[in-house]
Simulated assay, not measured.
Amino acid sequence: MTGTYQSLTVDLPESESEAAQDLLHEAGAMGLEVRDREQPIMPGVRAPSVGEAIVVAYFEDAETAEAARAELAEAFPSARTQLEEQQQQDWSNAWKAHIKSVQVGRLWVGPPWDVQNATPDKVRLVIEPKMAFGTGDHPTTSLCLGAVDAYMAAHPGADVLDVGTGTGVLAIAAKRLGASRVVGTDNDPVSVELARENAEVNGTPEVEMSGKELTAVEGRFDLVVANILANTLIELAPLIVAKVKDRLVLAGVLSHQKADVEAAYVNLGLVAEPGAQQGEWVRLDFHAKRAIP
C-alpha cells in the first residue's frame, strides 16, 4: 500500500477523552488509538502524563485533519495537539497492533488476524474493526459482553436490542449465545454496514443491523444494551427506557459520571442494580419494576 495519511495526536485530561474520541470520530477520523491507564502501552510508544490520556486520530487527508484539529481545540481548550503526515503502511501496522482478543464468560472475541489464538471451548466471534468501535478489548465492551453472557445463560431465547452497535459485537454475541430476535442500531452508516458484514462472517445474518431511530424500532426487548457516551445515554434515556421489557445494561460511563446517568434512568421508573467496574469504567444495570409483556 502506498501513499500517506494524517495522524492527529491529542493530549488532554483523561476525563475528556471519551468526548474527544466521539468528536474526532464524527469529524471523519478513519480510526482512533487511545492510550490511558486502562490500556497497555506498546513498547516505544509515548505514554500519557498522570491524569491525562492520549488520543491519536487518523485521517485520509490534511484538510479533514486540520478541520478536526480546529474543532477539537475549540471544544477542549486545554488539549495539546500535534499533526503529522505518516506513511500508509505504518497506519496498517499501528492499527492492528492495538486490537487485542479477549475472553469473557463463554465468549472469545478477536480480530481476524488473531483467530489462531482462539480457545476451542469458547463461542468464537471474529470481529473486523475497520472504522467502527467495539472489538471487545475495551473495558466498556468487555463489561457489556459479560452482562450479555450472564443474561443469556439465565434467559435463553430472550430478545435483545443493542443501541449504538458499532461493529455489532454485542448483538452478534447475544445471537450466538441463544437470543431470539436481535436488533442492533447505529446512527453511523459505516458502522451499520460493518456490523452487517460481521454478522455474516459470524453466521448470524438474521441479526437486524439498522440505522433506524429508536422510535422506529418495533417492540420492547427483554435485554437492552447501550455502550455509548454518558451524555448521549442521558439524552436518549426516555427513548431507551421505552424499549426495556426486563433488563437494561449501560456502559461507556466513567465512575464520576455514574450518578448522573443512573439518576436519569431511575427517574424514568427503572430500578438500579449493582453493576460492574473495570478501572474507571462502570457498567450500570437496571431492571423494570415489573416485567412488561
Rank of each mutant, 00 (worst) to 15 (best):
M1F: 15
M1A: 14
T2K: 15
T9V: 15
E14S: 13
E14A: 15
E18I: 06
A19N: 12
L24T: 05
E26W: 12
A29M: 05
G31M: 03
E33R: 07
E33L: 14
V34W: 06
D36A: 07
D36F: 08
M42K: 15
A53F: 04
A53Y: 03
V56W: 05
L72P: 03
A75D: 11
F76K: 02
S78H: 12
A79L: 05
T81E: 11
T81F: 08
T81V: 13
Q82C: 12
Q82L: 13
S92W: 02
N93I: 11
N93E: 14
I99K: 01
S101D: 06
G105S: 07
R106V: 02
W108H: 06
P111Y: 04
D114Q: 13
V115M: 09
A118F: 04
V126E: 08
M131W: 00
F133H: 01
T135A: 02
G136M: 03
D137K: 02
H138P: 02
T141Q: 00
A150H: 07
P156H: 05
A158W: 00
T165D: 00
L170W: 01
A171S: 10
I172S: 03
A174D: 01
A174I: 01
R176L: 11
L177Y: 01
G178F: 12
G178K: 11
R181H: 14
V182K: 00
D186A: 09
N187Y: 13
P189N: 12
P189G: 13
V192M: 06
L194S: 06
N198A: 10
N202I: 03
T204H: 01
E206Q: 12
E206F: 07
E208K: 10
M209R: 08
S210M: 05
S210H: 09
K212W: 06
T215Q: 14
R220Y: 06
F221R: 07
D222M: 10
L223A: 09
I228K: 04
T232V: 15
A237P: 03
A237H: 04
V241Q: 04
A242M: 09
R247G: 03
V253R: 03
V253K: 02
Q257A: 04
A264C: 11
E273C: 08
A276I: 01
A276W: 00
Q278T: 07
E280N: 12
W281K: 04
L284T: 01
F286M: 04
R290C: 11
